[in-house]
């Protein structure tokens, strides 16, 4: 199942790190996100696009997960040559993730 059917997201930058806040579209989807959208799974998803590790934080109160993607922005801010130098669309890039959910 594509993650875009379970969640919405917003992303931004801090230096060379992009953050992606991933928010369950319904509260009952949040445990699915917690279980399946792990830091390791996200790191695998972004393989070749980021040079550093992935950290994950949980915000059960907002039914949201926050991911920090280190080394995502070609140096970040003004240094970066990327179109998305400030990581604004890493959010929707994460939503391309396909989850293997049991039927």
């Amino acid at each position: 199942m594509p993650l875009v059917e379970l969640a919405h997201a917003r992303s931004g930058d801090k230096g060379d790190t992009a953050n992606v806040g991933l928010i369950a579209l319904k509260p009952e989807y949040y445990p699915i996100l917690v279980k399946h959208v792990t830091a390791a799974r996200v790191a695998r998803h972004f393989k070749g696009m980021i040079t550093g590790p992935v950290e994950r934080y949980e915000l059960p109160n907002l039914h949201a997960l926050n991911f920090l993607l280190h080394g995502a922005l070609d140096g970040g801010g003004t240094i970066s040559l990327k179109t998305d130098a400030q990581g604004k669309v890493f959010s929707t890039a994460l939503l391309r993730l396909e989850l293997e959910l049991p039927r």
Partner: peptide, 9 residues
């Protein structure tokens, strides 16, 4: 919520 998680560490 989208704004709360924006640029969050």
């Amino acid at each position: 919520t989208e704004q709360l998680v924006y640029e969050m560490g």
